[in-house]
Design a protein around this nucleic acid. Structure first.
Length: 584
RNA sequence: GCCCCCGUAGCUCAGUGGACAGAGCAGGAGCCUUCUAAGCUCUUGGUCGAGGGUUCGAAUCCUUCCGGGGGCACCA
């Protein structure tokens, strides 16, 4: 149990003994580190219902709680209880940290599916795809560390209008290909007719043309319908698009260090669509409106207007609402307790509609959690979604190259790097660049739309991913040198120096922060702790020269502290998807 | 028009109903014969968009207004 929850339990007991709700005893990290390490504010809140002055309650609580493991307890101001724990207690919790992380989970183990990434297969990944992938991956790692059974699903956009548009685009360019000939009965060529570059160029081109040309847009809709009805040439072409696109996207996700357990997509549920729609119609859940099928999802007690969900187009073709609903059905059958949709906040209404329809139609059981983990957009310096100077989108692969270049330059400026083998320099540049990218994103709260600033992502000083790696590298270096001198980490002693104590206090926050980050689905809390830990370590490093320490027991203790800090930092960085090099 | 999100230091952003609102960058002053200076120390900088309310206590909850972004049926 974490130090904070252990203290909370004791203060809760004390409040309970006074006939007050034990939740008043919640201990929090002090807002005033100059006064105390922890504080309890419950006496103030309890005063009214107890009919006693807050200070009196606080005094009574303090009297009951006093013990060896608490060094200082005092009542301050209007009724705050200030707590300073005994150094021995602190050291004991640092030593037990590894066990406490495992018990940070606040709920029973659940089967969780995280839907993230979600790229459309009609184009290469660009900067706009970054957030869902990074945030979803971090949440997957977090829930997994907390002991849940977690599955990540990329949920490809591969069965909707974009494919129909691509089919039409290719037909306009290369009408001679056999895929478009209704008379042709196959077999179709094994080689894809396009590569990823052509695909990436084709898609924006056709989207623009469809926007200006209603007839062409209609043709794309028809192609979509025919694909969904199984027209062979189109299906063959779709497979090619999928192959070409996935190969490129896999490369980009690999470079980011992001993987998926399931590479499902809209098309995964294509055989479910027709029966599901028929069932919804038969059940009276889906009704005809203006030629299309809709599901009314408004509830009588809605504070807001919730428009109906559009289930099918009037030509009978399917939209992403259809595939999303069928995907809920698939996930329900596969027995997930919780499904987290890590999707852009602009889709909140859509997901709300899908979730409601799934409940209404009995597709999702009542106890299955469907939750939209929304995030803000990545904007350029002008406050609008990020574009390159030329006005195009920035490809993810180019973005990765940019941060790697910056890391390589920084490495070349450092004296140490000259004797690093070429291969290691490249690996470090990659790890550092990715760290800058991921930390730069994850340090922000997911809901805020933040400004993408290349200078910020390529400067590695201050609150950045590389700063965290640098701290960890320093820890590794100390431990490596200690090893060479046959110095071993020993039992962690009570801290004597302020900066040592400060480091320990931050360390023991770990289980609480993980629990909170999971509860809020907010990886920035993980990022924040990692940053504070690195800062505390760097200050400890300046003040306490581990390898030169003369007292062997103190030195062994410090080595243990460094080792624990490294383990914690590595864990936190791993949760953020950031690797730590051996040196940098 | 209705709904959602946002508004915090010059810039980019944190902030769990609690005490004196934080960090990084930028600006100023220092620290490398010492475990990696991608580091550390000190410092300048704020009517938390504005008003009202709830509360012992509000950046945080409610409400009105102002400003910005987004969404609202055949795109995803």
């Amino acid at each position: 149990m974490s130090l904070r929850s252990e203290l909370s339990r004791r203060f809760g007991d004390a409040f309970a003994a006074l006939g007050l709700d034990r939740s008043y005893g919640e201990v929090v990290v002090s807002q005033r580190p100059d006064l105390a390490q922890y504080q309890v504010n419950g006496a103030l809140a309890a005063a009214k219902s107890a009919g006693r002055p807050p200070r009196e309650i606080a005094e009574a609580v303090v009297e009951r709680v006093a013990g060896d493991d608490v060094a200082e307890l005092s009542v301050a101001g209007p009724g705050f209880i200030n707590i300073t724990v005994a150094d021995e207690t602190l050291a004991r919790h640092v030593a037990a940290l590894a066990d406490e992380v495992g018990s940070a989970r606040s709920e029973p183990s659940r089967r969780i599916l995280i839907d993230y990434g979600g790229p459309n297969i009609s184009k290469a990944l660009h900067a706009g795809h970054l957030r869902s992938a990074i945030i979803g991956d971090a949440l997957k790692r977090l829930f997994r560390v907390l002991g849940h059974d977690v599955v990540g699903d990329i949920h490809l956009g591969d069965w909707g209008m974009p494919i129909g548009q691509l089919i039409v685009a290719l037909e306009l360019r290369r009408p001679d290909l056999p895929y478009f000939d209704p008379e042709y009965t196959g077999p179709y060529p094994d080689e894809p007719p396009v590569d990823i570059d052509e695909l990436s160029e084709l898609y924006p081109w056709i989207v623009r043309r469809c926007r200006d040309d209603a007839e062409l847009a209609d043709r794309a809709r028809r192609a979509t319908l025919e694909l969904q009805r199984g027209r062979e040439g189109y299906v063959a072409l779709w497979r090619h698009f999928l192959t070409v696109s996935l190969a490129a996207q896999r490369r980009d996700f690999d470079a980011l260090g992001i993987d998926f357990d399931l590479w499902y997509g809209e098309s995964t549920v294509r055989d479910r669509l027709e029966p599901m729609v028929e069932r919804l119609v038969a059940a009276g859940v889906a009704v005809e409106s203006e030629g299309a099928l809709i599901v009314e999802v408004a509830e009588p007690d809605d504070a807001k207007e919730v428009p109906p969900l559009l289930l099918t187009r009037s030509d009978g073709s399917y939209l992403y609402t259809t595939t999303d609903l069928a995907t809920v059905e698939l996930r329900a059958e596969e027995g997930y307790d919780v499904v987290l949709y890590v999707v852009d906040h602009r889709q909140s209404l859509h997901l709300e509609q899908v979730f409601r329809a799934a409940r209404k139609a009995g597709i999702a059981p009542p106890d299955m959690v469907l939750e939209h983990v929304a995030f803000g957009t990545l904007n350029g310096p002008d406050g609008r979604p990020f574009k390159t100077r030329e006005g195009g989108v920035l490809l993810l692969s180019d973005l990765i190259a940019l941060v790697e270049d910056a890391a390589r330059r920084r490495l070349e400026d450092a004296d140490l790097a000259q004797d690093y083998p070429e291969e290691e320099r490249e690996r470090i540049a990659h790890q550092v660049g990715i760290a800058a990218l991921k930390f730069g994103d994850l340090a922000n709260h997911r809901l805020s739309s933040y400004v993408f600033d290349l200078d910020r992502f390529t400067s590695f000083e201050g609150k950045t991913g590389p700063y965290l790696q640098y701290g960890a590298v320093r820890m590794k270096s100390i431990l490596r040198k200690a090893e060479e001198r046959e110095l071993r980490p020993g039992p962690i002693l009570a801290p004597e120096v302020d900066r040592e104590r400060a480091l320990m206090l931050t360390l023991v926050e770990l289980p609480d922060v993980l629990a909170r980050a999971a509860e809020l689905r907010a990886p920035n809390h993980v990022a924040d702790l990692a940053y504070r830990l690195a800062g505390d370590f760097n200050r400890f490093y300046e003040a306490c020269h581990v390898l030169r320490e003369e007292d062997p027991k103190r030195q062994a203790s410090w080595l243990g502290l460094v080792e624990t800090t490294l383990r914690s930092t590595t864990l936190l960085l791993d949760l953020l998807g950031i690797e730590v090099p051996e040196r940098m």
